[in-house]
Design a protein around this nucleic acid. Structure first.
Lengths: 334, 334
DNA sequence: CTGAAAGCGCTTACAG
DNA sequence: CTGAAAGCGCTTACAG
């Protein structure tokens, strides 16, 4: 069965293709009622579906945006993407989600691919490894917004957590629980990933505020595979931390695996607290204290800002970051 | 900065657009070397990127497939989708993932949308609520494959787990552990969802094989929101089950919440076992016995079958289902 | 109120 | 070895 086109409809309905097109685009202003009804009926009869590819080519808009997350394994990425989809869906914009897998090369591939597919704009959780590319998009006045991370020297607004505050919340909570030896473990910071850097900074500041000395042995940033061994070392010291903060959800899972493997009791042997919520936090044994990000609001904001840029054809922003407040959810692991 | 097109390249390189097109499509057979080099250089200089939308329109192929999962909340859906993406990526096919959210209406919307976008084929985890639509695609010789579920009367091959076997594995494992009062809770079967139906059947057969009588009070299929209360009732009976099988990952989570909330010890108070693996199974307290699906292989198979149909232009299959073996991962919750 | 014409950015026989 | 022409399926001024 061959694909039926607007010409088939036009012929069948005895009108020109333009008229059918008017119908499709709901420009009924000057259309005779019988004409409209006839077209409607023929479309129904033939099961005609307009070819969006052709329309996009002509209109120079695909009504589609792209989302490139740095790493889909983070719960945060999934939730933010979902929020973006929801918002876009409301206004009939489609969304294509891609996963850069923390590799700048893949990120570049997806940016090129999505732009070749003519998506109307891009929401990127930048790996940070493609500065030239980011800059090109700005120069070309192409609509982009960043999420979760910012890139030095690239004037694009980024939707981010107030990471300093999240660490402060974590540290203050630990102190209130009576711990003053507090460690933190984040995933690697070799690529200057904003949230990790800021959470580390925030951790130091919070300790300072509390008059607790900072100990390098309590503060580690390593590859995910090394988190368990790093924690092991940390706990083998003479004066091991009583509490440890996980820099993100993936780090938290590694820490929990270690705790489980070594049959430590939480919080008696080690208090554990994670930045980023995890699906099982509430029914884990014991339930895990976490610091959640307002993922829905953040995704919503990212979408709104991008759609604004697309609509207003004004892609310039002052690169002013938009920060969201973290939320402490105290549970029993601390 | 305006978008540059093939014409700009042609002009700049002093050749016709056709020649540039030949270059883009790697048809160098008859192209002068200097011509090729000149084009290459101009493209580089201008930062030209071909417009895929235009190409797709002409070639009548978008090199993109669509994947519509019934419900993205299932771990299974995510993992299968990832495998599909991986396979497609290898052969330069793009993938668009959509979530029907268990609603036939949304499913229809996405099928229509993806087809309007001219994707070359569709992998569907069918809700089952759009038989006419499925049938239309077959009639139109449009490439489709089903995953996880089959639809009565629709001759499309489906990639599925051997669900009977998964229940058998579960029941046999429980029996070997010394339990003979074994319950099962699945999510709702009002829409005849294949895996749920088959897992229930398999459960009954396995009990029969073992000579254990089937008790209706031990066998429940309810909405996700009612799982905890259903389990509560089940355990309040005179002769409550010693073990309960979760029909899928979402059911398992509800059961774990209940167990947690009522401070039951696993497996002493209640043995728990889930069909579908969950991310935290290995480090939960106690680690959860699960029956895993070979998600990667299943996604791979789905992609291969679909790509085959697309390539061979032969979309007919005998609707023969392809089954994969489940795998028991015994841990400490049973 | 409706139609003829041009054009979106490519690709593809075909001619030379 | 390269170019002119037609066409993919739409939309959009514009004319009448």
């Amino acid at each position: 069965m061959k694909k039926i086109t607007i010409s088939d409809v036009a012929k069948q309905a005895n009108v020109s293709r333009s008229t059918v097109s008017q119908y499709l685009n709901h420009r009924f202003d000057y259309m005779g009622e019988k004409t409209r009804d006839r077209i409607e009926q023929v479309i129904e009869e033939l099961g005609y579906q307009p070819n969006i590819v052709a329309r996009s080519l002509k209109q120079k808009s695909t009504k589609t945006i792209g989302v490139i997350v740095a790493n889909i394994l983070h719960n945060f990425s999934t939730e933010v993407s979902r929020a973006i989809e929801d918002v876009c869906h409301e206004v009939d914009i489609h969304t294509i989600i891609c996963n850069a897998d923390d590799e700048p090369k893949k990120e570049k591939k997806y940016i090129d691919m999505l732009r070749a597919k003519q998506v109307d704009g891009l929401i990127i959780f930048p790996t940070g490894g493609n500065k030239q590319l980011y800059q090109n998009m700005i120069d070309e006045n192409y609509p982009v917004v960043f999420v979760d991370r910012k890139v030095d020297g690239i004037p694009v607004s980024s939707i981010m957590l107030d990471n300093h505050k999240s660490s402060k919340l974590a540290v203050d909570h630990c102190v209130e629980k009576g711990y003053d030896q507090i460690g933190i473990i984040t995933t690697s910071i070799i690529r200057d990933v904003t949230p990790r850097l800021e959470r580390l900074e925030g951790y130091e500041r919070a300790l300072n505020n509390r008059g607790i000395p900072i100990r390098e042995e309590y503060k580690k940033s390593v590859e995910i595979e090394s988190i368990q061994s790093t924690l092991h070392e940390m706990l083998q010291q003479d004066n091991p931390p009583q509490a440890v903060i996980a820099g993100n959800d993936l780090a938290l899972i590694e820490i929990l695996k270690y705790v489980k493997g070594h049959r430590l009791a939480m919080p008696e042997d080690l208090a554990v607290l994670g930045i980023d919520d995890v699906s099982f936090a509430s029914f884990y044994s014991p339930p895990i204290t976490t610091i959640a990000q307002p993922t829905f609001e953040m995704g919503e904001k990212a979408a709104t800002v991008l759609l604004g840029k697309i609509q207003k054809q004004e892609t310039k922003d002052e690169g002013i970051d938009i920060r969201f407040d973290p939320m402490l959810i105290p549970r029993e692991s601390t």
